[in-house]
């Protein structure tokens, strides 16, 4: 309480016995509570705390613990990198499976018609012909 308010109350307390009695009662109760002593632990609790916070000498999951204790920025950066990585792998797989995107053309020979297509198969679908050819060698 400050300034005029405090002065007003002080002036009132000088004239009003009822309020003065209430104030005295409150102050007496304050003093009663203030007399309560400070209690202290009977045992040395640090021994318990030390045992429960002992740093581990070696843990195979130290890196995991470090990530967990890392700051929010590092966590966000790690999450963003993971999302970008997953997106890149997904896009790459999708492109490989779209064989119709690859160019195709037909080559006409004198006796046979050979169709050449882009494929993931390194033998281009001519496995049997290749085996036959090797067999004749």
């Amino acid at each position: 309480m400050s300034g005029p308010e405090a002065r007003l109350i002080k002036a009132h307390l000088k004239t009003c016995t009822e309020c003065k009695a209430l104030l005295d009662e409150e102050l007496a109760f304050d003093a009663r509570l203030a007399a309560v002593p400070v209690v202290e632990p009977v045992n040395d609790v640090w021994v318990l705390v030390r045992a429960r916070t002992k740093p581990r000498k070696f843990s195979p999951f130290v890196w995991l613990a470090r990530i967990r204790s890392a700051g929010a920025t590092a966590k966000r950066a790690a999450a963003a990198a993971a999302v970008i990585g997953v997106a890149a792998v997904t896009l790459y797989s999708f492109t490989l499976n779209r064989s119709d995107l690859a160019p195709s053309y037909i080559s006409k020979g004198a006796e046979n018609v050979i169709t050449v297509k882009w494929s993931d198969d390194p033998l281009g679908g001519h496995r049997e012909a290749l085996v036959e050819c090797i067999g004749k060698m």
């Binding site: 632990p41 009977v42 045992n43 609790v45 318990l48 705390v49 429960r52 916070t53």
Partner: peptide, 10 residues
Amino acid sequence: AEEALADVFV
């Protein structure tokens, strides 16, 4: 209170 004190600092 002692046990809780240890818990607090852990």
